[in-house]
Design a binder for these strands. Structure first.
Lengths: 220, 220
DNA sequence: GTCGATAATGACTATATAGTCACTAATGGT
DNA sequence: ACCATTAGTGACTATATAGTCATTATCGAC
């Protein structure tokens, strides 16, 4: 298949290598998107393990063979989705509003998680399962460790400016665990049997106190 | 099969109905225990969904048919294990040391969770999965809701003495969610890649500050 | 020790699912 | 318009697993 490459025009100036997708490429991309989106849906409905390839392709309204043209197995599409979800989350984390104090930074981090998980509950359930798989003896694991590490690094880099020098990396990592743990843990309980507004009013004061106490702990 | 029942002796006094188990009954009980313990092991190693009945019976060193003499399917043994685990946890929670302030009560609750999960990591992973299943569209769910509700009630009854009257049940429930969420969430992240001592030193200051700030929030 | 009852067994069957592949459809190049 | 290439398809096969059941082992009653 012909790929677009940077080309010199007659003046010898390199044209912007702006990719022009032809119909086939668009169709392929669309099919892949449909598969990913269908998989996200069914994974968050039935659970990754309980989902079959047929579940995915039926939801995507595609033939079963099509799945195997895009992914080698369920593990691959799973880790692909985890990667996407974490990229999105990191992206939101890095659109950082100016924080001057550690309290503000923490409040910001928790807020981003809160809004993200509330708007993307499917992603939340997926990441929750991903985190579980990391603990279990699974082969899926390897491909998923990297995204989770990037996630931790993103949190760490948001916090490190406010931390005392002598705080080593290990402690910062633990701290990031605590933040992530709180958010994930709270949501995992809140999302069962709470309406969105309830979650809002319920997490607000908790967040405040959690932020406060973590700040104290961090700068100590 | 002959069951023991309360019997009057010749003085008409009801003897303590102390169950005497014969060999068969002991064997049956032992077999069931072996199955439960094997299931707990493999569930926490591979995950509930990825575990097969053969996995369980092989781990228990029993024939496959034996499984079906004790449990109707995987869902049943799963919810049986969840019930057991939560009973154990509630039991520890209710061996309450005298707490005079809400700080003490909270500290106590978190400590109990901490010790319990550290000593019973398999149970932790099981409950974690159970909580996930409650969120997913599963049939397993029904039998597991009750134990989790009992768990919340146990936390609530430990806290309610210290709470202001006007704090309604819903808010207490949310609060219990937050406590459970914090503990579960923290552990879910801590248990991957942290040694027990690390978890100890890492959760200690967090716990202190979390407790402090929650107390403020509660009595506000 | 014999016998009736029930617990344990694991080979077997029925079913569900992963993964394949010969075929069709769509597209781009000429 | 035609052909070559690649995307998409779904019937098919091979395999894994749930659940059964005829048989064997164990035990208690007598």
């Amino acid at each position: 298949m012909v790929m677009n490459v940077s080309q010199e025009n007659r003046d010898g100036i390199v044209k912007t290598p702006k990719k022009v997708f032809n119909r086939t490429e668009k169709r392929v991309a669309k099919t892949k998107r449909k598969l990913l989106s269908a998989a996200l849906e069914v994974f968050s409905e039935y659970g990754v393990d309980a989902t079959t390839i047929d579940d995915i392709t039926q939801r995507a309204d595609l033939g079963k063979g099509t799945f195997y043209r895009h992914f080698s197995d369920k593990a691959e599409i799973m880790s692909c989705l985890v990667e996407q979800a974490i990229e999105k989350l990191i992206d939101k984390l890095q659109k950082v509003e100016s924080a001057t104090t550690i309290e503000e930074a923490l409040e910001y981090i928790i807020n981003v998680h809160y809004r993200f998980f509330l708007e993307h509950q499917e992603e939340f359930i997926l990441l929750f399962q991903g985190r579980l798989f990391l603990k279990l003896d699974r082969q899926i694991t390897e491909q998923m460790e990297e995204p989770f590490n990037l996630y931790f690094e993103a949190i760490e880099s948001l916090l490190s400016p406010y931390m005392s020098e002598k705080m080593d990396l290990l402690r910062i990592r633990r701290f990031a665990c605590a933040v992530a743990g709180f958010v994930f843990g709270f949501f995992s309980f809140a999302m069962i049997g709470m309406e969105p507004e309830e979650i809002e009013t319920s997490i607000k004061p908790l967040r405040q106190s959690f932020v406060k106490s973590l700040s104290v702990f961090l700068v100590q």
